[in-house]
C-alpha cells in the first residue's frame, strides 16, 4: 500500500496550499519585519539602515517595553493562581450535579467566550463608566462613595480593571477545559478512593489532581501564551494608559508604528515579541514535559 499512503503527487497537492498560505501571511511578513527593524523608517519617506540600534534602545532604554512584559506576567499570575482554581472548583461542582443542570450552567458560563472582543470590551467600558456605569452606582448606593473611581483611567485601578475584563471573558474557556478534563477521570478511581476511606479533599489532592496533570499543564501553557498575546481588549479600553501603566507589548508596537510614526522601532518590538512568545512557549512546554515524566 506504499503507492497509496506514499503517493508523492497526492502529498504535494494536500500540503502545498496550506504551507503556501502560511508562508505568505506569516513567515514572509516576519522576514519583512526583521528587515525594517534594522532601519529608522517612519512608515513613509526615505529611511536609513541603523543596524541593531532599535533593539539596543528597547532592551536598555525603554521602560515601557519592560513594563508591558511585567503586565503580561501579572496577568499570567492572576489567570493561573486565581481564575484557574475558581474555574476548577466550579467545574468540580458541575461534575457532581445532574447532567442536564450542568449542561445549562456550562452553556451560560461560556456565553462571553463566543462574543466579539469589541462587544465584550465596550460592555465593560460602560459598566466601569464613572458617571452612569452600574458599578459606581452600586458603590454609591452602598455608601462607598470613595471607592467609586474612574476605573479605567485611575492609575490605581486601571490595570486591575483591564485584567478583570480579560479574566472574565476567559473564565468560560478555563471552566470548559477543566470540566472536560474531569470527565476523563475514570469513575472507578474516584470510587476506589472513597471505598478506601479517603475524604473528598484527599480524593482531589491525591487522586484527581495528579490524574488531571496533563490537562492542567495544557491550560497553563495556553494561559501563558494568551497573556502575552493580549491586545484588542487593552487597545479598545485604556489604549495602554494612563501613562503606559496598562501597556501590553502588542498594543505598544502598534502605537509605535501607526501613531508615533516609528515604524522601524515598532518592527523591532514585533520581532522581540516573536522571540519572547516562541521562547516562553518552548520553555513552559519543556518544563511541564519533564515534570510529567517525574510524575
Amino acid at each position: 500500500m506504499n503507492r497509496l499512503f506514499g503517493n508523492r503527487t497526492a502529498i504535494a497537492f494536500l500540503v502545498l496550499p496550506g504551507v503556501a498560505i502560511m508562508v505568505f501571511a506569516l513567515i514572509v511578513p516576519i522576514g519583512f519585519s526583521f528587515y525594517f527593524s534594522l532601519t529608522d523608517w517612519a512608515g513613509f519617506g526615505a529611511f536609513n539602515p541603523v543596524g541593531a540600534a532599535n533593539y539596543k534602545e528597547i532592551l536598555t532604554a525603554d521602560p515601557v517595553f519592560w513594563r508591558s512584559l511585567v503586565n503580561a506576567l501579572i496577568l499570567m499570575a492572576v489567570t493561573i493562581f486565581i481564575q484557574n482554581p475558581v474555574a476548577f472548583a466550579l467545574a468540580a461542582l458541575l461534575a457532581h450535579i445532574s447532567q442536564k443542570a450542568s449542561q445549562i450552567f456550562r452553556s451560560i458560563f461560556f456565553v462571553p467566550a463566543v462574543l466579539s472582543v469589541v462587544v465584550i470590551t465596550k460592555l465593560w467600558v460602560n459598566i466601569f463608566n464613572p458617571t452612569y456605569g452600574i458599578l459606581n452606582k452600586l458603590l454609591r448606593l452602598a455608601g462607598l462613595k470613595s471607592l467609586a473611581v474612574s476605573w479605567l483611567s485611575n492609575p490605581h485601578t486601571a490595570l486591575g480593571s483591564v485584567i478583570w475584563i480579560i479574566i472574565w471573558q476567559g473564565f468560560g474557556w478555563a471552566l470548559l477545559f477543566y470540566y472536560t478534563g474531569l470527565m476523563t477521570v475514570p469513575k472507578e478511581i474516584e470510587e476506589a478512593a472513597v471505598v478506601d476511606g479517603a475524604s473528598w479533599p484527599q480524593t482531589y489532592t491525591r487522586i484527581i489532581l495528579p490524574y488531571m496533570f496533563p490537562v492542567i499543564s495544557s491550560v497553563i501553557v495556553i494561559d501563558v501564551i494568551s497573556s502575552l498575546k493580549q491586545m484588542e481588549m487593552i487597545y479598545l479600553s485604556t489604549d495602554g494608559g494612563p501613562g503606559q501603566l496598562t501597556q501590553f507589548i502588542a498594543v505598544y508596537l502598534y502605537q509605535k508604528a501607526f501613531v508615533a510614526s516609528q515604524y522601524g522601532y515598532g518592527n523591532a518590538l514585533s520581532i522581540l515579541f516573536v522571540v519572547v512568545a516562541v521562547g516562553i512557549t518552548v520553555l513552559v512546554q519543556r518544563l511541564f514535559r519533564s515534570e510529567g515524566e517525574i510524575q
Binding site: 502560511m22 516576519i30 519585519s33 502575552l228 498575546k229 502588542a250 518592527n267 514585533s270 516573536v274 516562541v278
Partner: peptide, 12 residues
C-alpha cells in the same frame, strides 16, 4: 501558527 502572535504580522 498557534505560537506566532497575529499582532507581529500587522506591521509588515
Amino acid at each position: 501558527g498557534m505560537v506566532i502572535p497575529i499582532h507581529t504580522t500587522l506591521l509588515p
